[in-house]
Design a protein around this nucleic acid. Structure first.
Lengths: 338, 338
DNA sequence: ATTGATTAAGTAAACGATTAAGTAAGCATA
DNA sequence: TATGCTTACTTAATCGTTTACTTAATCAAT
């Protein structure tokens, strides 16, 4: 590996001069600067990040804490899409992305971040109540959380409130009153927001539903969604429309409905959440709320980088990214008689 | 951040002693070693990776080159599952995972790796013919490729040959002779292997198919798979069974089939490839070949780490991981008359 | 008592960069 | 001619570790 020392020798100047030339300091003459830059280029020089990090305490490396309850990890449709976008944005600003080790518990997340000298951290995991996650959010390292609000760091959240409201509004407009909600992990802040939005929208329309219509399921849990669907449809007064925590879980519901000999949407209307990937091609096309993962990821990155680079002037922000209602074909007015 | 210097002061020894004590060198008395270890623990010490990397040229960091033709990036079902497994295995060995920047072309992949002092690299991208990818594989940095064989580094590949053979054998056993194959990106080594296996298995059973039965589609391309399906089914003598490059593309095909008023599998049998995630819940359950992403990822990690840690004794290997045939319900014997 | 091993430390250089402080030359001003 | 200000560099310290080499003490064997 070519070092500044070698460039210095070749140019007949000191290492300091090389450093300053390559970093465009203004106490180097233009001629010298250009000559050094040229030779550095020729020799294939690129700075050793470890050395630079050691000296400057800036690694141009962002830590990603990314773990979910279901251990789906990188295969998580929503988070992987957010992360992909985050990564692209960060890389275009010259930052690399490193995962914070979650498989070795001998050190706290914060300690790992300090050890690796991360300039900043993005946290996107479902369980924000883990002590390790809290310690990280409260530490003085620039941090952005995804889909969770902390008082100590910036956050970028999907507009879950409006999302669920839009869905509920939509199915109400289609004439549904017996609306069930199979929702995601109860402990998650996202779930709480969505549930609140769900109840609120129903209340706005003076609709009351029996308690059994709300089922505490889990995100991405196909069998569990299927189970609750069966329970719901076997009620004396079953719902005419069922909302699911996400499009994947919805598949469990729709399979169940079909196997019970019922048709979607003729007998039961259904709607999901996420609007990503495969859900776009399901048959019939499903109603869902498409979260804007691209925006979420890139805004998280720009916010974090801004905090890293302008710590004084960048305020802690709560950024909310809205998605869009996809109506699809899985919701139609309920049959009059049932 | 606590440094060795502070520990040294507190213990009344030199920094060298602290370093040697914490690294279990044997020229430190047991008493001193334990005392230093204890105090280091108390003070919350953890080594600064940048400094260690600078001095030892070992970063305990593995670079991941991960880019595909479709730019699905991390949302790629198969690769994200492989990477998740790779990450878990690597982390359990004390290595972190950093993405190699693919959004900034001012530097080659190899230069980025050297700059970041990666101990090793894993390459999992469809286009291995990129000059940057080749340069990386040929360099002296330990490298493992996924689903591609290079002469200069180890590889871990899914058993595509057996996979496609198993699928074709299966549909032949079910009585199909008019078998079409909508296959993935033609340039990819995976596609070539599968195509060879496809033809070979047909030949083994003395089955010949018209050229139009083989369609050069793309991986994960739902609309394109749909298009080819329509073309195939409108042939004078249409196939009775269609194989797809992956389960996602298969969805395009199955939607098309349904919209043409045909039934799966009564009118047309279909089979996919991958066996991951959503495909497990499709209705009807689809025949597919489930690639063992967990094994692929973890073997890639152990192989790479072995090369890093025992460069002399670890041979370059070509590891093939077999998956399993999932029969599902999407293939039945073809109707006699059509 | 001298020599030679052995043990348990310490010293100091090094990794590759950055940067505060110093310096020498050039030039303008009084 | 002495003074001060720029300009364009160099020197040297530093970041936190590791490690080759040195040193001092202890002890056993002669």
């Amino acid at each position: 590996m070519v070092s500044m020392k070698q460039i210095a020798e070749r140019c007949g100047v000191s290492v300091a001069t090389v450093s300053k030339a390559l970093n465009n300091h203004n106490d180097i003459s233009v001629g010298t600067r250009d000559r050094i830059a040229q030779i550095a280029q020729e020799m294939g020089y690129y700075p050793n990040v470890a050395a630079r990090t050691l000296k400057t305490n800036r690694s141009y490396n962002i830590g990603v804490l990314f773990s979910d309850a279901a251990h789906s990890g990188l295969t998580h449709d929503y988070f992987s899409a957010v992360l992909e976008s985050f990564k692209n944005e960060a890389e275009s600003h010259g930052y690399d992305i490193t995962f914070i080790n979650t498989n070795d518990t001998s050190m706290s997340y914060l300690e790992r971040c300090r050890q690796r000298c991360f300039d900043g951290v993005v946290i996107a995991c479902i369980d924000f109540t883990k002590p390790g996650a809290i310690e990280l959010m409260n530490a003085d390292i620039p941090t952005v959380t995804i889909d969770y609000n902390s008082n100590f760091c910036s956050s970028v959240t999907s507009d879950n409130q409006s999302g669920i409201a839009a869905l509920v509004e939509y199915v109400i407009q289609q004439g549904h009153k017996r609306i069930a909600y199979v929702h995601g992990d109860s402990a998650s802040a996202v779930t709480k927001t969505r549930l609140a939005g769900f109840y609120r929208t129903l209340a706005d329309h003076n609709i009351t539903i029996p308690n059994e219509y709300v089922c505490a399921s889990r995100y991405l849990d196909v069998p569990l969604a299927r189970h609750f669907t069966e329970v719901l449809l076997k009620l004396k007064i079953p719902p005419t429309c069922i909302l699911y925590p996400d499009d994947t879980a919805l598949i469990g519901g729709s399979n169940c409905i079909r196997e019970m000999g019922l048709k979607i949407p003729d007998d039961v209307s259904i709607a999901g959440f996420d609007g990503l990937k495969v859900s776009r091609y399901l048959d019939p096309k499903i109603a869902t709320y498409r979260q804007n993962t691209t925006q979420i990821g890139s805004r998280a990155a720009t916010q974090l980088i801004s905090q890293i680079e302008n710590p004084k002037t960048t305020l802690i922000e709560r950024i909310v990214i809205s998605g869009s209602l996809i109506t699809g074909e899985s919701v139609t007015p309920p049959k009059k008689i049932r």
